[in-house]
Simulated assay, not measured.
Amino acid sequence: MESDSIHAIISAYENLSVYTTDQVQEAVQKVIKKYGITFEQFCLLRLLELKPGTSPIQIADYFNINKSGVSIRIGRLVDKGYIEKKMIDNRSHGLYTTEAGKELFLKGQQKIHELVGEWIRELGEEDSKEFIRIYWKINEIIKKQRVNK
């Protein structure tokens, strides 16, 4: 592939990625603002709702951030009563959403589903499935690159 073509594709990706991410953040902004959390904290809450018992080390790996950064984020959500720590064994603990955290997650998730649902209806089933297939492929490339670093 030619350099100009690669540059054009990268530029298009940047524009689309930033815009769509912004649209998703905007969709949940009213909900998270009401609950006093950031979009990043909402993403952490979402992970814990989908994978209860996740450890801080697993969170750091999942979001590709350092453990001290995870500790700060966890502390803020614990202080607000949206997640709680439960001992798994004598040396480690897992993180779980509280009832308040579940409520917040569901309200934010509903906003995302409404927005993305509109996109999917416009795209149609075939294009939506193709988009997800390609996005999964990109995700796998990202995972491989992390492992190789």
Rank of each mutant, 00 (worst) to 15 (best):
A60D: 07
D61I: 06
D61W: 04
Y62L: 10
F63Q: 01
F63M: 07
F63W: 12
N64S: 15
N64E: 11
N64Q: 08
N64F: 09
I65A: 01
I65S: 00
I65H: 02
N66Q: 09
K67R: 15
K67P: 02
S68D: 12
S68G: 04
S68V: 12
S68T: 10
G69V: 09
G69R: 07
V70D: 03
V70A: 08
V70G: 00
S71G: 09
I72Q: 06
R73N: 11
R73T: 12
I74S: 05
I74R: 13
R76D: 10
R76A: 13
R76V: 09
L77H: 13
L77W: 13
V78W: 09
V78S: 13
D79Q: 12
K80I: 06
K80R: 15
G81N: 03
Y82F: 11
Y82W: 05
Y82R: 01
I83L: 05
E84S: 08
K85D: 01
K85T: 02
K86R: 15
K86Y: 12
M87W: 07
M87I: 03
M87F: 06
M87C: 02
M87P: 02
I88M: 06
D89A: 05
D89C: 06
D89L: 07
D89E: 05
D89Y: 11
N90K: 15
N90T: 14
R91I: 04
R91W: 08
R91S: 09
S92I: 02
S92W: 04
H93P: 00
H93D: 04
G94P: 03
L95F: 05
L95I: 07
L95W: 04
L95T: 04
Y96Q: 00
Y96N: 02
Y96M: 01
Y96I: 08
T97H: 01
T97I: 05
A100C: 06
G101R: 00
G101L: 01
G101N: 01
K102W: 03
E103G: 06
E103A: 10
L104S: 01
L104W: 01
L104Q: 01
L104G: 02
F105C: 00
F105H: 12
L106F: 12
L106N: 14
Q109K: 14
Q109T: 10
Q109S: 13
Q109W: 09
Q110K: 13
Q110E: 14
Q110F: 11
K111M: 13
K111H: 04
K111I: 02
I112T: 06
H113P: 00
H113I: 09
H113S: 10
H113C: 03
L115N: 04
V116D: 05
G117H: 06
E118T: 09
E118K: 15
E118G: 14
E118N: 14
R121L: 15
E122Y: 06
L123R: 04
L123W: 13
